[in-house]
Amino acid sequence: MNAIDISNLDVWFGSGADRADAVRDVSFKVADGESFGLVGESGSGKSTILRAIAGLVPTWSGEMTVAGETLGVRRSKAFYRKVQMVFQDPYASLHPRQSVDRVLSETMGLHGVTDIDKRIGRLLDDVGLGPGFRFRYPHQLSGGQRQRVAIARGLACEPSILLLDEPTSALDVSVQGEILNLLTDLRQEHKLTYVMVSHDLGVVGHLCERIGVMKEGRFVEVLAVDEMRRLEAREPYTRHLLESSINSIR
């Protein structure tokens, strides 16, 4: 069964003369337990797809079926128990006045979890934070620790699908590796489906089995990570992207 099935998705911002089409006619499927990467330059519409799935962008057309639910403009509460999102900037995704405990317990409360106290301890353990972090405020945490809290929040309701919007791009290189390994481990442990957006082909190659290459709101091509590693891209744009990322490593 497919966790995510999207066909002919268009997303736009504004209306009339100001209308900007961010995503045009995008279709893709993500199987249960698969990890799918979306790559492209900034402004190519990859984050917009995630936001449309999550329900943060109301102006879209096409068909989206996520976790067996056909999506309309509004999302049901059940939807948010199955689909969660981790944002790019951990400095902006945690409320500056709320402690880790408050963030996680409110999240669990909204999802109707009962044994909140015990669950928070286990959740912090899962994301590699000890119990000492439970009552800290965001300004007492480093970027990597904040992102771990954000991931814990995403996992609080035990979703089956996690949408990752460049989860490592705002972090130091050494911390990036830690977070990627954490995401790999969590996926195995909780049998999660990932859709991950990144402009870093190395990050996507590490975590995903298939990647969709985007340019100006459209899919250029979808290829398996093995193909990417062997540099077997069919489209010139993908080849250009691969070459420039290899050059940047050298």
Binding site: A54, G55, L56, R75, K77, Y80, R81, Q84, M85, F87, Q88, D89, A92, S93, L94, H95, P96, R97, E106, T107, L110, H111, A150, R153, A156, C157
Partner: peptide, 26 residues
Amino acid sequence: HADYIHAIRLQGAGPLRVVTRHIWPL
């Protein structure tokens, strides 16, 4: 439009909760 407001909306929080619990304190 801050991510932490998006994040709490993604937990299914309604406008009343977002305004009183997350926007008022700031």
